[in-house]
């Protein structure tokens, strides 16, 4: 299980790097999907098959499809790819990159100093336990997430509503039309 974990982790990191450096938007999204799949394998290796399956179904299978959907509509061509590549000039990313590496070093040192005693053994956690946890100690978080989703749903319904003129406008227009004819 450790081999699976580290392999998947390396794949995830490498794929994410390619997401940033890839000039073609759809190819970048494909790397992102690969990265999410690798994260799912990481979850599985850590003994969370339920989370792994949800990662694939929700993130890789649904949300990323919408991303691809939108990017496909944007009509990228060789020209935009070229422009994207010109934006990836080293003088643009060298500074932030170095600073980011410093931060990464700090985090690595900080994490390395902590002895948590955790190890990867792949003991699976089944769906029943997750359910008990979610609707037990974490019920408030679940409900909050539900609120957010409900709000999103209301907004989507509002945005997708058919545009109709208010009643008084309609009656005025009808009167005008009646006079005309």
């Amino acid at each position: 299980m450790e081999i699976a974990f580290y392999t998947a982790a390396i794949v995830a990191v490498a794929a994410t790097m390619r997401v940033i450096t890839c000039a073609n938007a759809v190819h970048a999204l494909l790397y992102l999907i690969t990265s999410l799949l690798a994260v799912a394998v990481v979850f599985y290796a850590l003994g969370a098959p339920f989370a792994a399956a949800l990662e694939v179904i929700v993130y890789a299978g649904a949300i990323m499809v919408l991303f691809v959907f939108v990017v496909m509509m944007l009509n990228f061509n060789a020209e935009t790819t070229q422009r994207e590549r010109s934006w990836l000039a080293p003088r643009l990313w060298a500074g932030p990159g170095v600073l980011g590496l410093v931060l990464l070093g700090v985090v690595a040192v900080a994490l390395g100093g902590v002895e948590s005693g955790a190890h990867i053994d792949g003991t699976p956690l089944n769906a029943r336990e997750i359910g008990m946890q979610m609707f037990g100690p974490y019920v408030l978080v679940v409900e909050l997430a539900a609120f957010v989703l409900l709000a999103a749903l209301v907004v989507a319904a509002h945005l997708g509503r058919e545009e109709r003129p208010p009643d008084h406008v309609k009656t005025a227009r009808e009167g005008r039309n009646a006079r005309k004819s």
Binding site: L30, P49, F50, A53, V56, A60, V65, V68, P124
Partner: peptide, 20 residues
Amino acid sequence: NIGLLFILAMSSLGVYSVIL
């Protein structure tokens, strides 16, 4: 132990074939 979810996951990945 997540057999059914695995099938759903695979079928949701199948979308990519057609869309790509």
